[in-house]
Measured scan of single mutants.
Amino acid sequence: KKVLATKVLGTVKWFNVRNGYGFINRNDTKEDVFVHQTAIKKNNPRKYLRSVGDGETVEFDVVEGEKGAEAANVTGPDGVPVEGSR
């Protein structure tokens, strides 16, 4: 997949743990970017399912997906594990 941007910060708009996807709002362009649970690189080690929490700040790369921009290599800021869904 073509990389459109790297090390982008954003805020998780919503994430559905059961369906394994959601959207992140980019801090720079204010665009919403699709995020799938497989894109989460560093999950909260205390959680079994990969997820990001609503309102959580995350860092990610933006790649060209089949339906437009999507997140890849999702971590917390500066590469720490994500907090995950509460």
Rank of each mutant, 00 (worst) to 15 (best):
K1H: 05
K1Q: 02
K2L: 01
L4K: 06
L4T: 08
A5Y: 04
A5K: 09
V8Y: 00
V8R: 00
V8K: 01
V8C: 07
G10S: 03
G10V: 00
T11H: 07
T11D: 04
T11M: 07
V12I: 09
K13W: 00
K13E: 03
K13I: 07
W14M: 06
N16M: 04
N16P: 02
N16A: 03
V17T: 14
N19L: 15
G20I: 07
Y21E: 06
Y21M: 06
Y21N: 05
G22F: 01
G22M: 02
F23E: 06
I24T: 02
I24K: 02
I24Y: 00
I24L: 10
N25L: 08
N25G: 03
R26A: 02
R26E: 03
R26F: 00
D28Q: 01
T29H: 01
K30P: 00
K30T: 05
E31W: 00
D32A: 02
V33E: 04
V33Y: 00
F34E: 06
F34Y: 08
F34S: 05
V35D: 04
V35N: 03
V35C: 09
H36N: 06
H36C: 06
Q37P: 01
Q37I: 15
A39Y: 05
A39Q: 09
A39P: 00
A39E: 08
I40Q: 03
K42Y: 10
K42W: 15
K42F: 13
N43K: 14
N43C: 13
P45K: 14
R46Y: 11
R46N: 13
R46A: 12
R46K: 14
K47V: 10
L49M: 12
L49Q: 14
L49F: 12
R50V: 11
R50F: 09
S51A: 13
V52C: 07
G53W: 11
D54N: 13
D54R: 15
D54W: 11
D54Y: 11
G55S: 06
G55P: 04
G55N: 08
G55D: 04
E56G: 08
E56I: 09
T57P: 08
T57C: 10
T57Y: 08
V58Y: 01
V58M: 03
E59D: 06
E59L: 15
F60D: 05
F60Y: 04
F60H: 04
F60T: 00
D61T: 01
V62S: 02
V62R: 01
G65N: 05
G65W: 00
K67N: 12
G68R: 05
G68M: 03
A69V: 14
A69N: 08
A69R: 11
A69S: 09
E70Q: 11
E70F: 10
E70N: 05
A71H: 00
A71K: 00
A71I: 04
A71F: 00
A72S: 09
A72P: 00
V74L: 06
V74C: 00
V74I: 06
T75Q: 08
T75K: 09
T75Y: 06
D78Q: 11
G79V: 12
G79A: 11
P81W: 12
P81H: 12
P81Q: 13
P81E: 13
P81C: 12
V82H: 10
E83C: 13
G84W: 11
G84A: 13
S85Q: 12
R86K: 14
R86V: 13
R86G: 14
